[in-house]
């Protein structure tokens, strides 16, 4: 076993961390110690090989999926945060964002947010979320959804929506079940307390019309 100072000198010599005086003195020492000189040369060759064979950048397998997954998880975190903030508030407050000025500015595409979340009426189970349909009046907006049963969360991605200022508080609502009334061509959605929260119907032109309830 070498003295620690000799180990450190060897490492610093390999890494080119010695100043000129130190390097000259150490190389003189190597001339006196052939075994150490051999070890030093081999270790330096190893170091060179390591640098050549361990790339600092590598292609990420399924790179697009890598990014998408991050995007999805960030959206899920935002939903979780919104859900946590929503707890304890009444639905009137939860729907406050409908009355925010940005809502009109963001375009009618935002209406699609509500149109999406229809749960399976047969089970009323939030883990059995079912996306029945999507509707984006603004054709420049593309909607995609992801559902994670473990997280009991459905993430809605709207591509093409105008930027919403970060300081705006946007929250969603949790729909536990829905009832369809064929005669009225309407769907009423209820929260987990059984309170009617929203009703979706059609206006005179056949476009979806969403009416907050309660």
């Amino acid at each position: 076993m070498k003295h620690p100072s000799e180990e450190h000198n060897l490492i610093r010599w390999i890494d080119g961390e010695m100043n000129e005086t130190e390097r000259t003195a150490f190389e003189e020492h190597l001339k006196q110690d052939p075994a150490l000189a051999t070890e030093a040369r081999q270790m330096r060759a190893l170091s060179t090989s390591l640098r050549a064979h361990l790339p600092a950048e590598m292609p990420v397998p399924h790179a697009d999926f890598f990014n998408t997954q991050i995007e999805v998880r960030i959206s899920q975190m935002a939903l979780d945060d919104a859900r946590a903030k929503q707890t304890g508030t009444n639905w009137g407050a939860a729907l406050q964002w409908l009355r925010q000025p940005w809502f009109a500015l963001a375009g009618t595409a935002a209406l699609a947010v509500l149109g999406f979340f229809l749960l399976n009426p047969a089970t009323g189970d939030a883990s059995e979320s079912l996306i029945l349909s999507s509707y984006t009046p603004n054709t420049n907006v593309q909607a995609r959804t992801y559902h994670d049963n473990d997280a009991e969360a459905t993430v809605l991605m709207l591509d093409g929506l105008d930027a919403v200022p970060a300081e705006r508080k946007v929250s969603g609502i949790s729909i536990q079940r829905s009832e369809v009334e064929p005669e009225l061509a309407s769907t009423t959605m209820y929260d987990n307390h059984g309170t009617a929260v929203l009703m979706i119907s059609r206006d005179a032109f056949g476009n979806p019309m969403i009416t907050p309830r309660g």
Partner: peptide, 8 residues
């Protein structure tokens, strides 16, 4: 930065 972080 994904390529560098992944390599590390």
């Amino acid at each position: 930065y994904r390529g560098r972080i992944y390599a590390m």
